[in-house]
């Protein structure tokens, strides 16, 4: 049984349809890169998994359970953790409160996320709006981990960050010990190096599926589908 399964999902906002006919699976401990140009529906896919869009057709199963009709907070409690594109740190909470406010007991605790991101330990008393962009991204990922999820959804976690911070974050993602994740990313090369499987979205549909390792070397297809400049 896969950890996550989407069957023929059609979803959008109000009457608008953004995703159409999406079917995919993520196994336990699996990792999936979601690639595609701007506006292809990548963020909408993550929002649909969380229940923030209108599901018009299809089913979503998580841990074998149909979660299609569940409210977002119920899905989060079942173990889907979402790291939003804009990070969305709570400004009225300290860094430490951001981490503990929605925490769930499990292997990920304050001590362990501080080991993963030592900078956060230094900034634990700062308010959420006093952190740099990179620190906010670390905090957003750490906050999601504190809910001890079964599946981590990351929406462009490296966007707008300095290369040295990107390296630090990518290194941290490699040390998540097989936590299942879905990574939406514009840095195609990096995304493929962090995942096992990949899909490419175009106008709300999956147009290509590949193993990440093989896809990274398939320059013609990458260039055609993602419009990529690979070094």
């Amino acid at each position: 049984m896969p950890l996550l399964e989407l069957r023929d999902v059609r979803a959008g906002y109000g009457d608008a349809v953004v995703l159409d006919g999406i079917s995919l699976e993520v196994p336990e401990q699996g990792s999936l890169a979601v690639l595609g140009r701007n506006g292809a529906g990548k963020s909408t896919l993550l929002l649909t998994l969380m229940g923030f869009t209108r599901l018009k057709r299809g089913r979503i199963f998580f841990k074998g359970r149909d979660v299609s009709a569940l409210a977002p907070h119920r899905r989060a409690q079942l173990g889907i953790a979402w790291v939003a594109q804009e990070r969305e740190i709570f400004p009225s909470l300290s860094a430490e409160e951001n981490l503990t406010v929605a925490a769930h007991p499990g292997p990920w605790n304050l001590e362990r996320v501080f080991r993963l991101f030592p900078r956060l330990a230094e900034r634990r008393a700062n308010m959420g709006n006093q952190l740099s962009g990179g620190e906010q991204q670390m905090l957003a990922i750490a906050r999601a981990l504190m809910t001890n999820p079964g599946l981590l959804l990351l929406d462009e976690p490296f966007e707008g960050l300095a290369p040295v911070i990107v390296d630090e974050l990518a290194g941290a993602l490699e040390r998540l010990d097989g936590m299942a994740l879905i990574l939406v990313e514009q840095h195609t090369e990096l995304a493929l190096s962090l995942t096992e499987d990949a899909v490419v979205l175009e106008r709300g549909a999956i147009v290509h599926r590949a193993r990440s390792g093989e896809f990274a070397h398939d320059a013609p297809t990458l260039e055609r589908l993602v419009g990529l400049k690979i070094a």
Binding site: M50, F52, A71, P72, H73, R74, A76, Q77, A81, W82, A84, E88, F90, P91, S92, L93, E97, N98, T100, V101, A102, H104, R143, A144, T147
Partner: peptide, 24 residues
Amino acid sequence: TRFGAKVRAAVDNQRMARGLGIDV
């Protein structure tokens, strides 16, 4: 308290609070 932090989080950003499992 954690309850107070939840209230402030929900006021700051309802969608993110729900996305983290807080029953807003």
